[in-house]
């Protein structure tokens, strides 16, 4: 088999477990797989970033959020799979901006594992939408691509207005912009536990904007699952 990222051949049977229990093969070679860094150890209870052993159980960023009464309790929790290292930046660029859709396949196993660990079948999957213009520009919605990797169906309950690219704004600017999300049609949200799916959690503005719309429409609880925690 050839690696999905570096295209070099590799031995998919990398260990005894895979060989003997006939587990699914990894689509990446051990080197590319090894370059990703899983978030592990002690996590921030809110945003799921890794914490030092001695740090308090909630990170400073999340404290800021929770102290702001407009945003307190909007997001139940966020969990992410990988650290945003240089390698991940390259892979995201390849996948998202250069449109190599199939790269998402490399995240199926780890994303599913984190979903099973931190959420589960009681949660409804809602991918963070793109605006129509952006979708046209990119060709696919990366959040939807991730949601498709999970073993539950996802629902397009949200839609998005077109605005500046998020990455070109500062945190303050982002916080103050109007909420770009709105409900798509009249989804049966009442009392549902919803997990938002996105590629990156950077400041948490995006998922909180989306969560607020859903909560206001009657959702019981909104969390988020992202591939990367920046």
């Amino acid at each position: 088999m050839n690696c999905l990222l570096c295209h070099s051949p590799y031995n998919p049977i990398a260990n005894w477990r895979q060989l003997l229990f006939l587990e699914d093969f990894d689509v990446l070679c051990p080197r590319c797989r090894g370059a990703f860094q899983l978030i592990d150890g002690r996590l921030c209870e809110m945003c799921g970033r890794s914490l030092e052993e001695s740090a308090p159980s909630i990170c400073a960023d999340c404290l800021d959020w929770e102290e702001d009464e407009r945003w307190r309790g909007v997001l139940a929790k966020n969990r992410s799979v990988y650290v945003y290292n240089e390698w991940m930046k390259e892979v995201i660029a390849l996948w998202k901006f250069r449109g190599d859709y199939v790269v998402a396949e490399a995240f199926r196993q780890p994303l599913t594992a984190v979903f099973r660990r931190d959420f589960g079948s009681g949660w409804q999957l809602v991918p963070i939408p793109l605006s129509a213009e952006r979708l046209h520009e990119r060709g696919f919605n990366q959040a939807e691509a991730l949601a498709r990797l999970l073993p539950l169906p996802s629902v397009p309950w949200l839609a998005r207005k077109h605005s500046e690219k998020q990455s070109k704004k500062s945190r303050r600017e982002r916080l103050e912009t109007d909420n770009p999300f709105f409900l798509s049609g009249h989804p049966p949200i009442n009392g549902k536990r919803i997990v938002l799916i996105d590629d990156i959690y950077t400041t948490g503005v995006t998922v909180r904007h989306a969560a607020r719309v859903l909560l206001e429409a009657g959702a019981a609880e909104v969390g988020s699952l992202t591939l990367v925690r920046a």
Binding site: M1, P9, Y10, N11, P12, I13, L19, F25
Partner: peptide
């Protein structure tokens, strides 16, 4: 079959 001939 690449990488899986061991099964054969």
């Amino acid at each position: 079959m690449r990488g899986q001939t061991v099964y054969l």
